[in-house]
Design a protein around this nucleic acid. Sequence first.
DNA 1: CGAACTGTACCGGCTGGTCGGTACAGTTCC
DNA 2: GGAACTGTACCGACCAGCCGGTACAGTTCG
Lengths: 193, 193
Amino acid sequence: MGRTAGRSPQDTRRALLDAAADVVRARGIHAPLDDIARFAGVSKGGLIYHFASKDDLILELARDQLAAFQAGIDAALDPTDTAPGRLTRAYLRASVAPAGDDAAVRASMALVTQLMTLPAVAELARADAERLAAALAADGLPADVLALVVAAADGMSSAPLWGAPTHTPAHRRLLERLLHLTRHPHLWETLTP
Amino acid sequence: MGRTAGRSPQDTRRALLDAAADVVRARGIHAPLDDIARFAGVSKGGLIYHFASKDDLILELARDQLAAFQAGIDAALDPTDTAPGRLTRAYLRASVAPAGDDAAVRASMALVTQLMTLPAVAELARADAERLAAALAADGLPADVLALVVAAADGMSSAPLWGAPTHTPAHRRLLERLLHLTRHPHLWETLTP
DNA sequence: CGAACTGTACCGGCTGGTCGGTACAGTTCC
DNA sequence: GGAACTGTACCGACCAGCCGGTACAGTTCG
């Protein structure tokens, strides 16, 4: 049996990556390849045809997720915004995510922690984080304000990992105020002890 | 060969939990029992003598870590501090951790994400997080300020997970200002857009 | 003696990866 | 035009190794 339905190999590859994301998120990194393949409507043999090994699949998946996050930041970049801190604002918006994509970002966080168990993925993520940190540092905001905003963004997006509720009214207000703060960074100085 | 050194069974139990923490952190949840036992200077049989099953060991380890974090908060509670927000301040200090224990907290974060792959542990952590959230909510701070401080604390403590540098001067100043903010929560209102 | 182990042997289940097929869409060549 | 061939995309059975758990006989120390 060859190509069963009108599905291109590229579609199958994509389906396998999506299935891997779902299954790994739900059952952990050690989910059997068979289950992932089945979930994508393919046999294990079919999976191996597209990805030489499990590590290969997982690494590809990690690259995919990292790229998706970066794409989220890019999409959150306001083209009319040319003031210092524009990238930081995009990072903030992408991390917290507008209500619609809210679940997706949360899920992607849980997934990434699973993927990180593979040393190769950890290294990949580290390099990516470093790159992002450098870009943010060059965004024109005072280091203190940047540290606050990034910490708060990371905290809001990682909170659901521990099962905390997210996207409460307080969180929405917090997002607004942080965005405001990046536009008037001097305000933070008034909080000096 | 029975009791090799002058080590009490309680010490052996502790050594096993510590070994499990180290090995699981380094090699993941699926590290063989044999390796954990060996690392604690005990045979696999000896491990099974203390912990009926692997799940038993992992669950005990999770409880241990959760208790350690709570102990960290308790230790960070300033007995002379009776103002609103005292628990939040302790949470903040415990999350970021004084320089000495810095590596320990980071490590404990990485470990917990490993343990969370076990559903029973995830449930345990969720319940614990809920309990903590409730205690923080009753700490007497405005919800907005609490949300900011908790998010920033979570962000600072989870950042090393993605490999970002921690404990920079900016971070230290951030900690100070957040502590200051919990003592003068009205200051945050001045940042309203 | 009994608690606290050690060491070995073994079972059973799971899982990653291999491998020999198979279906079929094109392409080539007469 | 059609027979022969090729490459792609997959299937499904199988195997080898690992790992958790069990069983048990022996050993050492308080």
